[in-house]
């Protein structure tokens, strides 16, 4: 188990990232309040808070959902991914203000428990037009809460990567719930072309980006066939950049073949931290460095340098007349394998 979740500190880049998040939140709320004061006089403070935070949280959710596919399409977006969880937690806080204010405003000081009231006041569950839309927001917020509460690496380590990943994929369910929350809520009582257009554009953007990145990846992930010896041809040596890698898919697993110091080594492409693509990383100070959050592994044995303890599977590489081949058989995580040596002529 890694220790790194205690080692990651509030470094300079994270501080800048957080400052930008705060600035953006502040800017949005300020513009919302000024515009509403000017164009919608008579708005109550509660409605202002509810609408400003609800719309801001949904906007932040769009940004969060865009970062993944954008990074897969263009690596220059990777810095946005580095601290995405702070963005996620900030979004949850804003959404929670919206949810708590709504529950207090519409359900407190009544004759039943406010949380019961969210589900039991409007009971037209069989009607689309009259549907109790607040329940959808409540379920969405619950998912965001679970994600925010387990966002620390401590939970990633303790829940196991598979469960953690599944939990965090629920963000797409939450996104769907929130879209319906708005469509069956405010859009029913104040049908507005602008709101529906914004929602539609957001949905097209998010689904379009995911499809685009998915297609691009599917094309790159086509399995290579084995030759007579049972090896796959990775490509020409010249295609692998110094201190970088190319990836191949064998037996459904992605493998990254790195070139460094006149040597070639292959390790699993999947980072132990959050499944980041190691093959898109670089060799820094002799270590494969993950492009997402900078976890490191030694190329010849797949082990993180001490005191860290993460390990990934290793593979054998063969170099024959400028052609690079990979033996698709993985060695247990952390197994030392001799690199293929690049002869200098």
């Amino acid at each position: 188990m890694g220790h790194r979740y205690t080692a990651v500190l509030w470094n300079r880049q994270k501080k800048i990232y957080d400052l930008v998040i705060l600035l953006a939140i502040f800017l949005y709320l300020l513009l919302f309040i000024l515009t509403a004061r000017f164009l919608s006089p008579g708005i109550t403070g509660e409605t202002m808070v509810i609408r400003a935070t609800g719309s801001l949280a949904l906007l932040m959710l769009h940004v969060i959902l865009s970062i993944g596919p954008l990074c897969r399409l263009n690596r220059r977006f990777l810095p946005l991914l580095y601290n995405r969880r702070h963005l996620g937690v900030s979004m949850f806080v804003i959404a929670a203000i919206h949810g708590v204010f709504s529950v207090l405003q519409f359900h407190s000081l009544g004759n039943v428990n406010p949380l019961v009231s969210v589900f039991a006041s409007n009971q037209d569950y069989d009607s689309l037009h009259n549907f109790p839309f607040q329940t959808l927001g409540f379920l969405g917020l619950t998912i965001f809460f679970l994600m925010a509460a387990t966002s620390h690496d401590f939970w990633l380590a303790n829940l196991g990567p598979r469960f953690w990943k599944t939990l965090h994929m629920m963000v797409y369910v939450a996104y769907g719930l929130i879209i319906m929350h708005v469509m069956l809520g405010i859009v029913q009582s104040e049908p507005s072309v602008i709101l529906v257009t914004l929602l539609g554009a957001g949905f097209l953007w998010i689904s379009g980006l995911h499809l685009w990145a998915g297609f691009k990846e599917a094309a790159a992930d086509r399995e290579k066939s084995l030759d007579r010896r049972g090896y796959v041809l990775v490509g020409e040596l010249g295609q692998i950049p110094e201190n970088g890698a190319v990836t191949v898919v064998v037996n459904g697993e992605k493998v990254a073949v790195f070139r460094y110091d006149g040597k070639l080594s292959a390790i699993s492409n999947v980072c132990k931290h959050q499944n980041g693509p190691l093959g898109e990383g670089k060799i820094v100070d002799g270590c494969v460095t993950c492009p997402w959050h900078g976890y490191q592994y030694l190329p010849h044995n797949g082990c993180s340098p001490p005191p860290f303890t993460e390990k990934v599977a290793t593979y054998d590489v063969l170099l024959e007349e400028e052609k690079v081949y990979l033996n698709p058989k993985p060695y247990p995580e952390g197994t030392t394998r001799n690199p293929a040596i690049i002869r200098q002529n």
């Binding site: 949005y28 709320l29 509403a36 919608s40 609408r51």
Partner: peptide, 16 residues
Amino acid sequence: LSLVAVFVAGNQQPFA
């Protein structure tokens, strides 16, 4: 983000 803030805030039905 600024555009969305202005559009959403400016697009509310008048208040009573």
